[in-house]
Simulated scan of single mutants.
Amino acid sequence: MSLSIEKKLEDIFLGGVAVKNVKIDQSVDELEKQLAILLQKRKEPLSEEEEHVRQSVRKMLRRGVYRPTGRSKPASEYLIRAALNDKFPRINIAVDTINYLSLKYLVPISLWDTDLAASEQYIFRLGTEDERYIFNSADQEIKLHDLITGFCMRDGKEQAMVNPVKDSLATKTTPESQNVAMVIYYPFADDGILAQMLEEFRGIMQNVGEVLPGVIC
Score class of each variant (00 low, 15 high):
S102V: 14
R125S: 10
D113R: 04
W112E: 00
R154Y: 09
G156Y: 07
V107I: 15
T128M: 11
I148P: 02
A118L: 06
M153I: 14
Q159D: 03
S119F: 04
D139G: 02
F135W: 12
D113Q: 08
K104R: 11
K104N: 03
E129V: 15
E158I: 13
I134R: 08
E120P: 02
C152D: 02
A160V: 12
Q121V: 13
L126I: 13
L126C: 07
E158H: 08
K104P: 07
L106F: 05
Y122M: 02
A117V: 14
T149E: 04
D113E: 06
Y133G: 06
L126P: 06
Y133C: 07
K104L: 14
T114P: 03
T114Y: 00
R125V: 07
G127K: 13
V162F: 00
R132G: 02
L111F: 05
E141T: 14
E120Y: 05
D139T: 08
F135C: 04
T128P: 02
K157S: 13
L147G: 10
I109E: 01
A118Q: 09
L147N: 10
M153N: 12
R132V: 04
S110E: 09
A117T: 15
P108T: 12
A118R: 10
G127H: 13
H145M: 07
Y122I: 12
A117W: 00
T128G: 06
S110G: 11
S119H: 03
H145L: 10
D155M: 11
D130G: 06
A118D: 14
I123S: 00
I134T: 15
P108Y: 00
G150D: 03
G156N: 05
A118S: 13
D113I: 12
R125K: 15
Q159Y: 13
L111E: 02
Y133W: 11
I134N: 05
Y122S: 03
D130E: 14
F135A: 03
I123N: 00
K104W: 02
F135T: 08
R125F: 04
I148N: 03
L111H: 02
P108D: 00
G156E: 06
A118K: 11
Q121T: 15
Q140P: 01
E141Y: 09
A160S: 05
I123H: 00
L126H: 14
D113A: 06
L147M: 13
T114M: 13
D113C: 07
M161C: 12
F124R: 01
T128N: 07
S137N: 09
W112C: 02
A138C: 04
K157Y: 08
W112P: 00
R154I: 12
S102D: 08
G127E: 11
G150R: 03
P108G: 03
L116W: 01
G150P: 07
E129R: 15
I148H: 02
V162E: 00
Q159F: 14
Y105A: 01
D115I: 15
L126D: 03
D139C: 04
A117H: 01
N136M: 12
D139E: 10
S137Q: 11
E129G: 10
T149A: 04
C152V: 11
Y122K: 03
F135D: 04
H145K: 15
